[in-house]
């Protein structure tokens, strides 16, 4: 009984560590110049990104002990992306809520109008302080 629980927990841990599925850019055809930036980040173990004409939204999974520097990491990646895409608004966040919202956009495969609306919603959500 005890052994099976330990094995189960180990599987969970391993499953959480190695998952290529966690690196998604939506829509995929836009990803050419964003991917290399995200690929070289060492402090994150996954990202989900949504792109349209005006906005770039990146939800990142920061490594557990790098989370102390969450704001610094977000700023650093934002600057790097802004350099590459100076004409778009960039939002990089390690917030779990935004991650779930981005996932739901990717799952529903939203197009044009709906996509724009959801992105605006997420942006206003991330600005709230209280």
């Amino acid at each position: 009984m005890k052994k099976s629980i330990i094995v189960f927990l180990m599987l969970l841990l391993l499953g959480a560590c190695s998952n290529e599925k966690e690196k998604v850019i939506f829509p995929a055809d836009n990803s050419a110049s964003l991917k290399p930036i995200m690929q070289k980040q060492e402090t994150i173990h996954g990202y989900k990104s949504v792109i349209n004409e005006e906005n770039i939204l990146v939800a990142i999974n920061i490594n557990r002990f790098a989370r102390f520097n969450k704001t610094k990491i977000e700023e650093k990646i934002t600057k790097q992306i802004e350099k590459q895409f100076p004409e778009r608004q960039v939002l990089v966040t390690g917030d779990q809520k935004i991650m779930w919202e981005v996932e739901s956009i990717i799952d529903k495969k939203l197009k044009e109008e709906d996509l724009k609306k959801s992105i605006e919603k997420i942006k206003s959500l991330s600005k709230e302080e209280t």
Partner: peptide, 17 residues
């Protein structure tokens, strides 16, 4: 916190309240 983030529009920062 996870519950409020999942089912209500709260982020990590605001779900503490």
């Amino acid at each position: 916190t996870f519950f409020y983030m999942r089912f209500f529009p709260f982020t990590e920062g605001t779900a503490a309240n």
